[in-house]
Nucleic acid binder design. Structure first.
Length: 267
DNA sequence: AATGGGACCTGCGCGC
DNA sequence: TGCGCGCAGGTCCCAT
């Protein structure tokens, strides 16, 4: 799934490759992804605009265009971006430049989102979003957990609590910190929270270094894979031996989503 | 505030 | 071999 490290990888690569380019033509293969604006208007508004800046907030990709327009891209579960001349499989919306390269939003499940807004700060997903884990100091991180009674794993997935973690990195961080995913957040000791903080930072940085996890459809913009999936310790490893203790990794369902963990190592 | 469910979607793997 | 079912999960929305 595209989570913080995958989205960070994408925006860094886009910054190098498409900053300053003019979008000559918008190609829409599936209009369902375009959410807040009529198709025809979307095309006329985006065509001939210049890409001024590329950044992200949480998992949201934001392209600042000329004339103060913002193109908002959310890959959700299965989306990926490609930069190529040739049409990729599952191409849904393409942005063609004058050199024939095309930024391609591909999505096999059609759950992704594209919006065009004049102020990205006003988007509700942005307004409700919790802090960036890599820009949060340890003490501020610890304060977030005060009075939170919910279970720790679903809490880490909650983007209004902390931004950017998804099902892969939440599970990996909990294993790294040796914390059981069903623990109530307010039962964690300061020592455990510090460990969790350090694990989240360490894992996200390492995953960015590896250019993300290509467990599913995610790829880099040139089509190559991210290699952090080779370092997964629990995600999708149910029934396989724990790398630390050899006991079998378990899988439970929390809030409708799978959680893999080691019941021996994580308490 | 917490929790659970459904909706959005389609590809894939499984059982029969 | 082929069909149908259920699962995968990010986010939003509604109900309890």
């Amino acid at each position: 799934m595209p989570e913080l490290p995958e989205v960070e990888t994408i925006i860094r690569q886009l910054q190098n490759k498409i900053s300053g380019k003019k979008i000559q033509q918008v190609i829409v293969k599936d209009g369902r992804l375009i959410k807040n604006i009529k198709l025809a208007k979307f095309k006329t508004q985006v065509e001939n605009k210049i890409i001024k800046e590329i950044f992200r907030r949480g998992k949201v990709i934001i392209l600042k265009l000329s004339e103060n327009l913002f193109l908002i891209i959310h890959l959700r579960i299965n989306g990926w971006l490609a930069l190529a001349e040739k049409e990729e499989p599952y191409l849904k919306v393409g942005f063609k430049f004058s050199d024939k390269l095309m930024l391609q939003f591909c999505d096999s499940r059609v759950l992704g989102e594209i919006k065009l807004v004049d102020d990205w700060h006003k988007l509700s997903i942005i307004q409700n979003m919790g802090p960036e884990p890599l820009e949060t100091k340890k003490d501020d991180f610890l304060k977030l957990f005060k009075d939170r009674k919910t279970k720790i794993k679903p809490l880490l997935l909650d983007q209004t609590f902390i931004a950017g973690l998804g099902n892969i990195y939440a599970q990996e961080a909990l294993f790294c910190a040796r914390i059981h995913p069903e623990r109530n957040a307010n039962s964690l000791t300061p020592k455990e929270l510090v460990k969790l903080y350090e694990c989240i930072v360490k894992i996200l940085k390492k995953a960015i270094e590896c250019k993300g996890s290509s467990s599913d459809t995610y790829k880099q913009i040139d089509g190559s894979k991210g290699t952090y999936c080779n370092l997964h310790r629990v995600y999708q490893r149910q029934g396989e031996p724990c790398f630390a203790c050899k006991n079998l990794i378990k899988r439970i369902s929390q809030g409708g989503r799978g959680t893999c963990f080691c019941s021996t190592c994580q308490h």
